[in-house]
Design a protein around this nucleic acid. Structure first.
Length: 645
RNA sequence: GCUGAUGUAGCUCAGGGGUAGAGCACUUGCUUGGUAAGUAAGAGGUCACGGGUUCAAUUCCCGUCAUUAGCUCCA
């Protein structure tokens, strides 16, 4: 008999050779129907693999990420089986589960596989799934494994097997399909009730463009058809919210081939929105003791040689601009920090001056590969809401804490209630990727870990994700449809102060080196606006939206009256527009609803004679009659609520 | 940067070796209205750009640029 410890701490005794599925059955049949795999002593196993020693066991279902991964990995095998059936002779490379579904990289040889072929494969998958084919695990010797795939003439699997150690190789078989696989898998294909193949893309074998390009097929499966339908609806929703589409519709920004790829052009409405974001943050920063500074768009090459950026990124940057006669080299500014270091250096500093906080909405230019450009989220010229705090080592934690508070405030005002903090530390194995002393790295990493803990943030630690000059804390926000975006960032830096020989005089009358904190709550205005558009589906918070109120006269007779209303609203700091087109009221309302203006005032004979306004709220409908004063108060209250600390 | 797809009116898209098409938007006329599309007429295009094939190219071929889905990258 062996002892099985369940997650709730209960210990049950079973005969040696019991499976997780048996354990599930002993609890309830309903549970057993949902078990996809199981975690045995911390390792994910097949639910029907035998257990022969005392073990801890937790059963994994669709509700567990690992359960989902098992299901999707098995789905990749199912797709592979379907592909072999539809396209005999295809060569399979790798087929893992990913965050949302799975893919398989396939070599179709001469056949051109396109999206049009997906439904056929999908159909076959469902057909195979219904057969409830068992996944069978088998340990094979390296020689047998090689022989099997030699027979199949699959160079990819052979390459993989050659790198494996004899004795650690397993095959999984379901139906007529056998694959090299570590596992685990779901008990049988019948757990897969719904499948959708989503897209086809090129991918290089082992991600190396020198290798052969394979066809990657992405798909997703679910244990219930309803969940597939919901998933597809979510995809639709994401499409509807795409900031590139909404940005065009709402006239926020555009791009021009003539201006250049990845260089956004902000239209008047978008610019106004940007300005409001900038002013909002400036005000908050002003209250937190920041000083605004302003620096040029180019800087001498030596500046970036000093900072280390040139060495790191020189070749993959826009190339230098030269003066016509002297041949002096300048670079487009890729970062604001070196400039700010020189501002610090402009005058001697005492410990009494610290911390100094230089803030700048600084536009920077970075070369991004053409294939990386994407709407406003990945561009070649963008404006950071940058600031650099220079402080004594003792002040780091407090300053860090203050920055966290500022970022929390920003997220609140922009209605991002859900976010986590990702602590990015260096990968100690790869010290050549980083500059600066071990000791400083250690100090900086500790400071970040301590303050985040104290701030009570939900955190994850990622090794190897640090910037080359220091560790960082990134804020990952969840948007309204559950997607994660990296926005704000705080980075501790002991390196640049050294490179720029920054100093302050301490109370001991000795020279000391300050610590630098880089931080940007939005990250970049471009990216932030993109995320915000997708988060709120173009319905911006009232304080931010381009037009807050649309005034809709019932006929031309009331145009003048409406113009006066608009002016009065301006006195209440409310942005209003009059729709004086020669259209019926129904049309004006429809158009205003569609362009997402939050409030409408409908003005006709009745309103003009009673000096009232008839209010309609976007997406909600008629709110009834208000005096203009009360209406303005209603709006200003809503705004105040949104941006209060 | 690499691979595939795409590029036609301001927008969304149809078309196709020989006068270029729709809906919306726009302009004008009629209509002066009560909470999601009133009506008629009109204007609008070097069919991304450059080469080639052809009697003839917006259509077929090649290249460039851009967009896009991925891959690789990201201070």
């Amino acid at each position: 008999m062996i002892k099985i410890t369940l997650p709730d701490g209960t210990i049950k005794e079973f005969e040696s050779g019991v499976t997780a599925m048996d354990v599930a059955l002993s609890i309830s049949e309903g549970l057993a129907r949902n078990v996809l795999s199981a975690k045995v002593n911390g390792e994910v196993w097949d639910a029907n693999r035998t257990i022969s020693t005392d073990s801890t066991l937790s059963l994994l279902t669709w509700n567990d990420d690992e359960g989902k991964a098992t299901m999707w990995h098995s789905s990749a095998h199912l797709m592979a089986e379907a592909l072999e059936f539809c396209y005999p002779g295809v060569k399979l490379a790798i087929g893992p589960a990913i965050e949302n579904g799975f893919y398989y990289d396939v070599d179709f040889g001469k056949h051109e596989f396109s999206e049009k072929d997906l439904p056929k494969v999908e159909k076959k998958m469902i057909e195979l799934a219904r057969m409830k084919l068992q996944f069978e695990r088998k340990e094979v010797s390296k020689a047998d494994a090689l022989a099997y795939f030699n027979e199949k003439e699959d160079p990819y699997k052979l390459e993989l097997i050659n790198e494996l150690e004899d004795g650690s190789i397993t095959f999984y078989t379901q139906g007529n399909f056998t694959d090299l696989c570590r596992g685990p898998h779901i008990p049988h294909t019948g757990f897969i009730k719904a499948a959708k193949l989503l897209s086809v893309a090129g991918a290089y074998w082992r991600g190396d463009e020198k290798n052969k390009q394979l066809t990657r097929i992405y798909g997703i499966t679910f244990p219930k058809n309803k969940e597939l339908v919901e998933y597809l609806e979510r995809l639709e929703e994401a499409k509807k919210r795409d900031h590139r589409k909404l940005g065009k519709e709402l006239e926020l920004f555009t791009f021009s081939q003539k201006v250049g790829a990845g260089l956004p052009l902000w239209l008047p409405k978008g610019t106004a929105l940007r300005e409001r974001l900038v002013n909002f943050l400036k005000k908050a920063q002003d209250e937190s003791g920041y000083d605004q500074v302003s620096t040029p768009h180019i800087g001498h090459k030596d500046l970036y040689v000093t900072s280390g950026h040139y060495e790191k990124y020189g070749e993959d940057s826009f190339q230098s601009i030269k003066t016509p006669h002297e041949g002096e080299e300048f670079l487009l500014k890729p970062m604001n920090c070196p400039h700010h270091c020189e501002i610090y250096n402009a005058s001697p500093k005492s410990y009494k001056d610290l911390p100094v906080r230089y803030a700048e909405f600084g536009t920077v230019y970075r070369y991004e590969q053409s294939g990386e450009l994407h709407g406003l989220t990945r561009v070649r010229g963008f404006t950071q809401d940058d600031a650099h705090i220079f402080c004594t080592p003792d002040q780091v934690e407090e300053e860090f804490t203050n920055v966290i508070d500022l970022i929390k405030y920003v997220f609140k005002a922009l209605d991002f209630p859900e976010y986590t903090a990702q602590i990015s530390l260096r990968d100690k194995e790869k010290s050549d990727k980083y500059i600066g002393s071990d000791e400083n790295w250690e100090k900086a990493e500790q400071a970040i870990i301590n303050t985040t803990k104290e701030a009570g943030l939900k955190t994850v630690i990622e090794y190897g994700e640090a910037a080359f000059y220091g560790p960082k804390l990134d804020f990952m926000v969840k948007d309204a449809i559950g997607r994660s975006w990296q926005l704000g960032t705080i980075q501790v830096d002991y390196t640049l102060p050294e490179r720029f020989e920054l100093e302050y005089t301490g109370s001991d009358n000795e020279k000391h080196r300050p610590v630098m904190i880089h931080r940007a709550p939005f990250g970049s205005l471009e990216r932030f606006v993109a995320v915000l558009i997708e988060h709120c589906a173009g319905k911006f918070p009232l304080w931010l939206t381009p037009t807050q109120v649309a005034i809709l006269p019932l006929s031309e007779k009331y145009n003048d009256y409406c113009e006066n209303l608009s002016k009065s609203l301006k006195n209440y700091d409310i942005r209003a527009l009059v729709d004086d087109r020669n259209e019926k009221i129904g049309k004006k309302i429809r158009d205003t609803e569609l362009n997402k203006t939050p409030y409408m005032l409908i003005i006709g004979e009745q309103e003009a004679s009673d000096s009232m306004v008839s209010v309609r709220k976007q997406g909600e409908g008629d709110l009834g009659s208000f005096s203009l004063e009360n209406f303005a108060e209603l709006l200003n209250k809503e705004i105040e609520e949104q941006i209060k600390h």
